[in-house]
């Protein structure tokens, strides 16, 4: 069952073809990572899924709604069921951490009392390891902390889909590992559909049940993680072998090297 479906999506910016007929069905309640070399349109793909961009050709369906052509009401109805972590958190500087996390609740759950909202916010912040930071200003947080708060805001209204735009970008290796661990925790705890756009292969392999690889605007690989890693395709092997030691024979499993090459 797939709640996100891309059907022969084409997108170009000027003369640059970013997506060249990408078809993908993202399975429900599992974690899918979309990887690929920089600039191959991973972020563009994500923006199609949330309806910020419309495809030139093809369709993007989310909960059965065509995100490219839907009117505002239908679009917002879908968006209320998803949460997204942006690259630098995209927190509002004029609000405190607590107000940022409460934002979706303030706008979409007027039925909740302020006390109930505050409790949920505190609870969610604790979940992402940012307990007690509600009164702080976003500008006082480090990059890793901003991502945690951004994640808290994304999950606070218990969405059915959570999207991650390069969750490890701009982080040092230790913090990056911590974010991977956080994503795994949330995956276990929430059990909803995760879509992770990333260039960090090690992280992708750690968290994802399925991997899609974009290369040259097309889908170079798609399947369960183990299948993709043991794919014989040279493009795929070349991409993944940079940070992983791939199995020699199909069906084998990949080993992570002791030293992480960046």
């Amino acid at each position: 069952m797939s709640i996100i479906e891309l059907d022969a999506v084409h997108k170009r910016f000027g003369s640059l073809v970013v997506l060249d007929g990408v078809s993908l069905a993202i399975p429900e309640r599992e974690t899918t990572a979309i990887v690929g070399p920089s600039g191959t349109g991973k972020s563009v793909l994500l923006k199609h899924i949330v309806g910020l961009i419309s495809p030139d050709a093809g369709r993007v369906l989310c909960f059965g709604t065509d995100m490219g052509t839907a009117g505002e009401a239908a679009l917002y109805a879908v968006r209320r069921r998803m949460g997204m972590l942006f690259q630098d958190g995209a927190l509002f500087d004029s609000l405190t951490v607590g107000e940022n996390v409460a934002f979706p609740l303030d706008h979409h759950r007027p039925d909740l009392s302020p006390t109930a909202r505050r409790a949920i916010v505190e609870d969610t912040l604790a979940k992402v390891g940012m307990a007690g930071t509600a009164p702080r200003a976003p500008s006082s947080l480090s990059g890793g902390q901003r991502k945690r708060v951004g994640l808290a805001r994304a999950i606070v209204s218990r969405p059915e889909i959570v999207l991650f735009d390069e969750p490890n970008s701009g982080l040092d290796p230790l913090t990056s590992d911590a974010i991977d661990a956080l994503i795994l925790d949330m995956k276990r705890e929430l059990g909803v559909t995760f879509v992770v756009i990333t260039h960090d292969i090690v992280g992708a392999v750690r968290v994802a049940d399925h991997i899609a690889m974009l290369s040259g605007g097309r889908l170079a690989a798609w399947g369960r993680t183990a299948e993709v890693l043991s794919s014989p395709e040279p493009v795929v092997r070349a991409f993944f072998s940079r940070n992983l030691v791939l199995p020699d024979a199909p069906g084998g499993s990949a080993r992570l090297p002791i030293v992480r090459l960046v």
Partner: peptide, 17 residues
């Protein structure tokens, strides 16, 4: 600044016009 820090996109994705 909100535009380049993706805060306007964040509003859209959180279904706030």
């Amino acid at each position: 600044v909100m535009r380049i820090r993706e805060q306007i996109d964040a509003l859209e994705v959180m279904a706030v016009n």
